[in-house]
Structures are given as structure tokens and as C-alpha cells.
Amino acid sequence: MESNHELSVPQPRNIRKRVRKRRGRGLLYSFIVLLGLSSGFAVWFFGMESGSTLRYMMADTLITTQHRSWARYLIGDEELNRRVADYDKRFNEMAEIKDQNNIDLTHSRDKEVEVEQIEGKNFKGHILYVHDPKMIRVVTTGIVGQGEQILSMVQRTGAIAGVNGGAFDDPNWDGNGFKPAGVVMSGGKLLYSDGGMEDPVNVVGIDRNGLMVAGRYKPSELIKMGVNEAVTFQPKFIVNGKGLIRNAADGWGIAPRTSMAQKQDGTIMFVVIDGRQPGYSIGATLYDVQNLLLERGAVTAANLDGGSSSVLVKDNQVVNKPSSSYGMRYLPTAFLVFSQPEKVAVKNIWENIDMEHFNSSYKPFASQ
């Protein structure tokens, strides 16, 4: 039997209205969920201990990069300035702890140079082992007015291997790499100092007997101590076989790292950790590096320039993966390893140049 009632068919206008309502409700629900999650994250990130730990770790990481000022958005200007000042104070205190120099340099040494691959939770890297510390020399850039890449230094001098060295004037983290910070010593000669002979400065180096030297010294003291090779950086973080960094939160953030250490038998270890490369290696804290070195018997250890400067070269090949998207940086100094170090002549590239007024932002070569 047929019905006399016609079937009701929704009009297109009504359909569009219902779709808009459902869409609007969906967007409103998504917004409410997102707002709730954002609020919960903010409470955790800024108000809870675990969130604050991550926040300060992120801030410390930024402090070690060219984007140091960005850390203010995480911890504020006042806390940023306080944290930087606190690090400087603590690093100087660590530098003053005296070494007992419990290193055996009496027995003969082989000339072998080895590389070990290392890996941690968030990082990958390498350790360069130099069993004879006297094979190591500080070499400087060979280009007047410009830093030099470590690979170029190795190839130019015929070195077996090398890593990046000390601090340098680096305006906006984009400098030309020519002007060191602190001191530079090579072959027992003081090639550079931006202070007076009686002004203490943090150094990392090796004396004439092959003993690693790290800490805060006057240039006049370094000469009297018979220091042969030295650059400026900090902190010294292993002294007399004991680590000075208390935990990961005190490890100066996560970043690419280069550090130098010495074992009881005199072997020098250079650690180079890659970073800032998600999916491969994020980087390491100094606490991570400290643990790596203590596990391998380090008696003394100190930090060298890291970040995008971290490079390890052996047999004329770059072993690690530098973090800079522009390739290896141009640097003033490097620790290089030679089969005949006594035959290496390192000239004073800064002699007769007014370094006090040198423009570290100027790049004389377009390719740089």
C-alpha cells in the first residue's frame, strides 16, 4: 500500500549548516584540548621540579651557542646573567684545585695513535688516544688575518691527527677565527697573550716532560713551569682522578664537545662528541664526558672549545661530523699530533699586528 506522505529530503542549505556546526564543535573541542595541554605543559615546565630541570638544561645549552640571548625566554635576563656569572665563578674555583701530578712519564712509549668510537644515550663521538704526549704540538693558523680549518692545518704541517684548540674572539659566533682569547704557547714560547704576564688565565696544555697542565696560571708561571704547549679554555673537570662536575644538571647543557685528558700512564685522550644533529647525535653534557673519561682511567681532564668548532682529523680525513651547516670553522689554534714534533716550526702569526684593535668580524676572503 502506497503512503500518501512524501519522503522528506534535506535541502542542501540545511546540510551545509549541519556540517558547519559539526566542524565548529570539532574546532572548539580541539582548541579546548590544546589549551588544556598547553596549560598543563606550562604548569609542568615552569612550576614542577622535573620541568624546571629540563628548562634549565635547555637554557644552559643555549648559553653555549651563538644564541645565548635566547635563554632569557626560558629563565629571564636576571637568571641568565646570574647563571653565566655562577659558571665563571665555579670554573675558576675548579681551576684552583691543585694536581698531585700522579702521572708516570718514566717508561718508554710507542708512537701509536688510535681512535675509538663512542656512543651514549643522546650522542656519538670519538676518542683519540696519543700514547706519547710529547708528540702533541699547538699549531696556529697559517693565514694572516684569518683562522684556518683543522683539516687544512693537518695537511699543511704533515700531522698525523688533530683536534680543535682554544678560545677565540668570536663576535656573534660568526668571527673570522684569527684572534685568540687568553694565551697561546707552542714549543715553549708564549706566542700570544691578551693580558699581562702576571694576569691569571685558564689554560689547557702540556709541559716539556709530557705532563698535562690544566688550571689557572699566570703566563710568567707557565714559562717557569716549563709548559710547552697551551691554549686557553675551561673548566678543568677531573683532578687527581676525581670528577668535579656533580651531576648532569651542572654539566653546562647539551652540546658538541671537545675535551682533553691524561691517564696515569701518560696517555693523552682527546674526546670529540658530535651534536646538534637530531637523529644522529644531539650532544653531551660535561658530566657525560667526565663519566666517559673516568671509566677510561683519566687522572686529569679539561674542556676545550666545543660547539661548531669540534673537529677530529686523522690521516688527512675528518673523522667526526661537525655540527656547523657551513662546514668546519676557521680557528686560530689546534692540538696536532706529529711523528717528529721537534721538527715542527710554529711561527708567531700575530707578531707585529695590533691585536688589541683587530676586527674579528672582518672576513678578508669571500669564501669564508
Rank of each mutant, 00 (worst) to 15 (best):
S8V: 14
F31I: 08
T141F: 00
R16A: 15
L293F: 15
R276S: 05
G26E: 05
R83M: 05
V139N: 08
V130R: 00
G165D: 06
V311Y: 10
L128V: 11
V231K: 04
G297P: 13
T106M: 03
S281F: 06
L128K: 08
T157A: 05
G275R: 15
N303H: 10
N316K: 14
Q317S: 15
D199G: 02
F91K: 11
R329D: 07
D169N: 12
R20W: 12
R25V: 12
V299K: 00
G307D: 01
P256T: 05
I97A: 10
L62F: 00
F91P: 01
G215T: 06
N122M: 10
Q100A: 15
L74N: 05
V184R: 06
N228V: 00
I206Y: 08
V272N: 01
R82H: 14
A159K: 13
A334K: 08
E2C: 04
A261H: 02
N81Q: 14
G275L: 02
N352M: 00
P235A: 04
Y280E: 11
G36I: 09
T140R: 09
N176Y: 07
F46V: 10
K242R: 14
A159T: 11
G165Q: 03
G120M: 01
H67W: 13
V231Y: 03
F338W: 02
V231L: 00
E198R: 02
G241E: 10
Y56D: 08
K179F: 04
I353R: 11
D110Y: 10
S8A: 14
G36V: 07
S325I: 14
N303P: 08
A59G: 02
G142A: 05
M57W: 11
T285W: 02
E198M: 10
F365G: 04
G215Q: 08
K263S: 04
K343V: 02
A261T: 07
G195Q: 14
V19R: 11
K189D: 04
V130W: 09
